[in-house]
Structures are given as structure tokens and as C-alpha cells.
């Protein structure tokens, strides 16, 4: 367990604690019980939110304790001890370093986001085809011919199974092609 991961876990649990607190407030706003004392709309969110708040705070406390235990006394607590920081030696079977993999992840996330945003413009199948080509050629550097083949087959199968056999109305976008 590294310091940076503990910090991330603490941050995550802290966010959950805030969400829990917000749910309690929201639940109270909706009302916990009806006039006859029966459960109303806000009861479950308030109770579950309270439990999330309490458990998240316990988790924060446990993570802080484990981070302190992992840190030998007198050692600086700066970042750099994290996973990414040890990237110089961390190379996968394809020879990619940790920092390169992190960049790839960000690029893939961007491509997926871009493809979903493109759906209203060029349609679902073309967006997904572009997504696959961008990843296989741009990120993974696979062979052009085999990448195109895989993409064409995959999109054709999706069009046939979902679009034709199952009758799913896949959006065609402003272009209105497929």
C-alpha cells in the first residue's frame, strides 16, 4: 500500500461521506414519515445516507491509520511514492512504461468520450467504428489492414444483430447514413 493510494482512498471515502451527508439532508427534505407514522419518501435516503456518512468516516480513519503505519517515522510525505512514480522500472510485456500507459488510458477515455459525443452528428455505428479505428491504429499501433478488417466485421455484426435481427433503432445522427 503506497501513500498516494491511501490518499486517493481517503479522498474517495471523503467524497462518499459528503454524498451521504447530502442524502441525509435530501431525505429530511422529502420527509421521513407520513402523518400516520409510516415510511415516507425521505426515509430510506436519510437512513442509507447516514450509514454511508458513518461508514465513510470510519473508512477515512482506518485509511489514515494505515497510511501512518506504512510511513516510517521521519520520512517525507510528498507524492512520488505512488504507483506512477515508480514507473521507470514498471514496464509491461509490450515494453510500455507506467507513464505511457497512463497517457494511453487518458487518450482512450478521450476517444470514448469523443465517440459518444459524435453519435448525434454521425450516428452510432460510424462513431463506434471511428472509436475502434482510433484505438487500434492510434493507440495500439496495430496493422492498418487487420485493424480495418476487424472494425468492418465488428460494425457489420452489430448492424446485423442489433439493427436488423433485434430491431434496435440505432441512432443515425444528422448524417443519416447507417
Amino acid at each position: 500500500m503506497t501513500f498516494s493510494r491511501d490518499t486517493a482512498r481517503i479522498a474517495f471515502s471523503a467524497v462518499l461521506a459528503v454524498v451521504g451527508a447530502a442524502a441525509v439532508v435530501g431525505g429530511l427534505g422529502y420527509g421521513l414519515t407520513n402523518d400516520d407514522g409510516t415510511v415516507h419518501t425521505g426515509f430510506l435516503p436519510a437512513v442509507a445516507g447516514g450509514a454511508v456518512l458513518a461508514l465513510a468516516l470510519v473508512d477515512v480513519a482506518q485509511s489514515v491509520r494505515s497510511a501512518r503505519r506504512a510511513m516510517p517515522p521521519g520520512e517525507p510525505t510528498s507524492a512520488g511514492a505512488g504507483d506512477a512514480g515508480s514507473g521507470a522500472e514498471d514496464v509491461d510485456v509490450l515494453g510500455r512504461t507506467a507513464s505511457r500507459r497512463n497517457r494511453m488510458l487518458i487518450v482512450v477515455l478521450g476517444i470514448v468520450l469523443g465517440a459518444v459525443l459524435l453519435v448525434p452528428l454521425i450516428g452510432f455505428l460510424l462513431s463506434m467504428g471511428a472509436l475502434m479505428l482510433a484505438i487500434t491504429l492510434g493507440v495500439e499501433r496495430m496493422r492498418v489492414r487487420s485493424s480495418i478488417l476487424v472494425v468492418v466485421i465488428a460494425i457489420a455484426v452489430v448492424w446485423l444483430v442489433f439493427g436488423q435481427l433485434l430491431g434496435v433503432p440505432l441512432p443515425t445522427g444528422l448524417l443519416g447514413l447507417i
Partner: peptide
Amino acid sequence: YGYLYPLIILTSCVGAYSVSN
């Protein structure tokens, strides 16, 4: 995996879309 994961992304998106169009 360079081919497999774009296929997983594709099938995940189309599968999700088809649940409620």
C-alpha cells in the same frame, strides 16, 4: 488485447443502448 478491448467497448456501448434504446 489491442483488438479485444475496443470490441469490449463497442459491445458494452451497443448493449447498453439496446436496453432502453
